[in-house]
Nucleic acid binder design. Sequence first.
DNA 1: CGAAAATTTGACATGACTCAACTGGAGTGG
DNA 2: CCACTCCAGTTGAGTCATGTCAAATTTTCG
Lengths: 200, 200
Amino acid sequence: MKDNDIYKHQLTSHILESVHLSQAEIDIVSSKFEVRSVKKREFILEPGQVSKHMRFIANGSMRVYLLDENSHEHTLQLGIENWWVNDLLSFLTQSPSRMYVQAVENSTIVQIHRVNIEMLYEKIPAISDFFRQKAQNAYVALQKRTLENLSVDSYQRYINFITDYKEFERRFPQYIIASYLGMAPEFLSHLRKKNSKDLS
Amino acid sequence: MKDNDIYKHQLTSHILESVHLSQAEIDIVSSKFEVRSVKKREFILEPGQVSKHMRFIANGSMRVYLLDENSHEHTLQLGIENWWVNDLLSFLTQSPSRMYVQAVENSTIVQIHRVNIEMLYEKIPAISDFFRQKAQNAYVALQKRTLENLSVDSYQRYINFITDYKEFERRFPQYIIASYLGMAPEFLSHLRKKNSKDLS
DNA sequence: CGAAAATTTGACATGACTCAACTGGAGTGG
DNA sequence: CCACTCCAGTTGAGTCATGTCAAATTTTCG
């Protein structure tokens, strides 16, 4: 229980960075979230399931990916501490997901059920405001990625990635990074070799 | 003035599809928006400028794009009636844009200044709620596009595009669609030829 | 009608993928 | 704690998809 409080406190601190809440509101919000720990490689969502929760990573790392018809993995999202992770399409429409959401490291997540978050939207407008800001920022970040995919070549995209997300390069295996950048893992390996030559 | 009222009514109807507002609230919202008409090829945002407005297309069509270092255009967003169009990064951070936002057809937009929308967020929580929903849906749509770019080949991406957005194929020139799909216009032309053969 | 822009077409170049073999390191069980 | 296995990562060869360039054709618009 003590541990859970720490994680919930991490969540509310995170929310308070963006919007103001009274202590009473903090308590209500906190009471509607639940803490859950997830083992490395464990799935918290698999294709066919409906996403019922918004999830905040308190600790560890996760990824969202799917398989195409050739069984190739494509990574939609990577996340570490203080990031939100979900298949938002499945969550918003309550339809079966095509995604895997998987722990990359042992992780702790803090989650809220759909019914409860909708209750919070009604009772506490600041929560709606918070998720508006989150969604707008996530949209902007995804636009940046979309534009890079359209306008930057693979080598430069890799360089930008390791520059912008140093942390991610250490914590996610190469084949996952390749599938995030939209290239074959062997090709990423070639780019890494080129990069180490460029540096020397 | 009569015309303006029609366009504002179109906007408020659009908002009311997602959230509830009292008549008094509708009047406040309506009073903070302004109607503006834009000629074909005219820019409402250019690189270096800061986006000061959220903009709703009442009529016509627009696109958001940028130029890379080889002066190639890359289209981030296409929009027609009842779509919102902006460089959200520039708008949210009030920093200079890298984007062009241009009318593709003669268009009418209904826009609200940043200062006024923030006032509405405070006074009328349903407006924050509305834009939360819009941002979440836009994020989901952009994820879909990201996944298609990662996992579907060019030909199929073109087929999916003309299937999902019939309207767009009619109203936007090929070179813009090519720059949206992430391919050279000549290559799109090859795909179109292949498609017409496949159909016969 | 004429000029400019968009699209088509085809030849060629190249970036990125596939496949297969090899290397090295991490995890597991005896 | 060693030995073994397995999986991630590397390397290189061959191939394919897509881009580039240039010229011809069609469409748009003043």
